[in-house]
Amino acid sequence: MNETEHAKARPRWGMVIDLDRCDACQGCTTACQTENNIPPPTPQSAAQDRSIRWMELLPNVEGEYPRVKLRLIPRPCMHCDKPPCIKVCPVGATAIGAEGIIAQVYARCIGCRYCTTACPYTARYFNWYPPRWPEQLSQSLNPDVSVRPRGVVEKCSFCHHRLQKARDKAAAEKRELRPGEYLPACVEACPTKAMFFGDLDDPRSEVAQLARSPRSFRLLEDLGTEPKVFYLREGE
């Protein structure tokens, strides 16, 4: 396969979250914390609003008491096609990959936090404290994901270590990667099947079809960041 053919075959990974199906159980948040070695919030970090949540449920309150409607919108990193975060990084610690995943190289990050300010979705988190887990959990970290030290910025990676594992398996079995073989932990864990993941450039894929649906929208679309996470608003 030459370089041009390879470029054509490259997927553009994206996510669709159906807000009609989401019941805000936070299963995605828990799955993400476990998968990506994110230390659980402490009373101190919560009080200072410094807890790390790669997948966060954004609250949206409508109406006034007693007629209040609370909507919770799951918010991972949007993996924007035009990401503002990588433009401001002075050391090249964050970059967009060929398949559209925004990478964060912790060893390069100097912790200046320009990117956390630049991200309009507040999807980036600074490690204010050294990571700590309860004793029972400290021995069951995921060996496929590094433990980030204090002083670096981190964010959702679309669980790209899972992509590599799936690719390795496909290569060992001498076949192409099958659709649905690579899913981030949040998508896999969603009990109401509200999350979809796949190649946005493949017109036959479920995510590409859902992303084109009339119900589809993206967060802060007018900023021109072109996020690759689509939401489906309430249906008929």
């Binding site: 396969m1 370089e3 390879h6 970059a95 990959g97 060929a98 398949e99 995943i101 990478a103 190289v105 912790y106 060893a107 496929d144 994901v145 590094s146 990676s157 790209h160 270590h161 590599q164």
Partner: peptide, 12 residues
């Protein structure tokens, strides 16, 4: 070898 040089290929 035409293998990916994305940061995420080696750094996680």
């Amino acid at each position: 070898r035409g293998v990916s040089t994305d940061c995420t290929t080696c750094h996680r």
